[in-house]
Design a binder for these strands. Structure first.
Lengths: 346, 346
DNA sequence: CTGTTAGCGCGTTCAT
DNA sequence: ATGAACGCGCTAACAG
């Protein structure tokens, strides 16, 4: 209807003609390859601008007879969330094959910077356009990321960031907002009374952020809430269970419980053992098997979720943009915080 | 790493060779064009199956020098949600241009089946691969949809479905689940007391569904809630305002209010005029300018959202699948219900 | 009915 | 430093 004048989108041919150079030269400019005199590059640039040329990613991938390759590297272990993330990637990979998109996942030893760095070292431009990693904040990892970037492989961080590195982009939720949301719901659910806070580890950036957000809103909007903790249960099922059991024993009047970390199956077990499931308002993180079950049984009231599918979408979009040489805002695509009750379970 | 044997995906050439026919014949079979003997087609089909051949949509579009064209038809009027939806489409259209994806939006007179049917009648295969409409449940619309389908244009419904028509797919949230979610939150926020229910129109399917979901959970889990209504305010700002004003006047003890329809700016005005903003728990639908403001000011507690971006993603994915001739489950891609509080506003 | 051939927009040798 | 020519997977004339 309201197309601009050129009914046809401009192509490299048009740019070449307009700039008075050959196709190859245009291509060199487009892909930032050497061998073009600045003056010539200039002419090409302005032709591109004048014609509002946008290169065709599909054609580009087709011409290279090559998929866009994205390598995900996740921590291994029994972490439900990471397993979900891996599943989501595999699902996306299935449909991606039709769009020349090749996603691959490997797991490396969790909490082991050396393992992650080593795996990063194996990657190269030929086999991989973009690496997406759940970063461990460590110098060796930082060096590996920077090295890869020099080799021309874009790196993005997922869930957990690695600031001051050459990573092009971070994908994850705003954990402070997640903590605020938890406090807001908890405050309205409980009105007042004792609320316990459990984290995996206060050394983890995301847990720290959640705590800060929770405290901020609790203090400002629900001063009648009495916060207990935070305690650390190290994302462990058993530790969380015994800790929660003690908490329930010591505080018969406990109104609410916010678990910022993992280990939710232990938490549920403790609630049920104490006969308090459904009586204490519980907010937890990550929609996985245990939390899903907890929502359905009523032991958990709300689950805040990172939305793995959304994160992968953002990663793919980022990889595409980077492949096109588009500059990307490192925090461009904020991931929505999913909120799940029993009633909107997917 | 763990690729299947054919490192390279099968192409039409491979299929042709395997079937012992030419490219053109393969193409005819792929696109269901006439001029192929059944026996030959059979050979091609089995070659396709044997090689697990999947055609490359981008290459196909490239060869035809043609974008995938998706025409959205939305109701006009001052409906904030529809305006948001249109914006989201336009945003997606910007990036789509790099992937040979052409999205276009037109608005037709709201609540006017004839207008929608007429607009549908103007579409044809040449200018449009897929139409996405917010359906009005009406015979003329149904006929227009069926006619378009016969002309080879796929039709999908968005937000509001048109069952028993040739529409290939419906994209929208589960409104019963949305209603249940609202009740669940309202019940936990209020504990008990009077809760008023306002709909746009009980003739609208989505509002009906929300009501049913709300009532179901309220009855089962929060019998101490006293439901007032439902009332109809016709998605109109003014009507909603005067209605809410009356409600607040007549029920000084009103604890909660669930607006299943639009007109939220009127609702907020009434709450503020009565000095009850922030005192009455309010749940509304669709994150748009008025509800966003309401969340920030505290007049609205929760907004349930359809997630326009997700809906458009689903529409585009559906259009792609249909263009490839893939059969799609009409309800394959359920849209997540977004839940927003002041604290997780995007 | 079936096959041959020439592109679609772009990337990539290989010459120049 | 620059250009010509071919090929990616697929479609669409046009032959046969």
């Amino acid at each position: 209807m309201n197309d601009k004048l050129p009914l046809r989108r401009a192509t490299v041919h048009d740019v070449a003609r307009q700039a008075g150079v050959s196709l190859a030269t245009v291509d060199r400019v487009l892909n930032g390859r050497p061998g073009v005199r600045p003056a010539t590059a200039e002419k090409v640039e302005s032709a591109i601008a004048a014609l509002d040329f946008r290169r065709d990613l599909s054609a580009s991938l087709l011409a290279r007879a090559r998929d866009l390759r994205v390598q995900f590297i996740l921590p291994d272990g029994r972490n439900e969330f990471m397993a979900n993330l891996a599943d989501a990637i595999l699902r996306r990979a299935r449909t991606g094959i039709a769009e020349r998109l090749h996603l691959d996942v490997v797991r490396v030893k969790a909490m082991d910077p050396a393992a992650l760095a080593a795996r990063l070292g194996q990657l190269d431009r030929k086999s991989c356009d973009c690496a997406v990693i759940v970063a461990t904040d460590d110098e060796a990892v930082r060096r590996a990321v920077d090295g890869l970037a020099r080799k021309g492989v874009a790196v993005m961080t997922l869930v957990s960031d690695l600031p001051n590195s050459a990573r092009k982009m971070f994908i994850g939720i705003d954990n402070v907002a997640a903590g605020r949301t938890a406090a807001s719901l908890m405050g309205r659910f409980c009105g007042g009374g004792k609320v316990a806070l459990i984290a995996g580890s206060l050394g983890l950036r995301d847990h720290q952020d959640r705590l800060a957000g929770f405290r901020e809103v609790a203090a400002r909007e629900f001063p009648q809430l009495e916060l207990i903790g935070p305690f650390e249960a190290h994302d462990d099922r058993g530790e969380t269970e015994s800790f929660a059991a003690g908490l329930l024993r010591d505080h018969p009047d406990l109104k609410g419980l916010y678990n910022m970390g993992a280990g939710n199956s232990g938490l549920i077990a403790a609630l049920e053992a104490a006969g308090r499931a459904g009586k204490v308002r519980v907010i937890a993180h990550e929609l996985a098997e245990p939390t899903h079950a907890g929502l359905k049984s009523g032991a958990i009231d709300v689950v805040l979720d990172q939305n793995p599918d959304g994160e992968i979408r953002a990663a793919v979009a980022g990889a595409r943009a980077l492949a096109l040489g588009h500059p990307v805002d490192p925090h461009a695509e904020p991931i929505e915080i999913g909120i799940f009750l029993r009633d909107n379970l997917r």
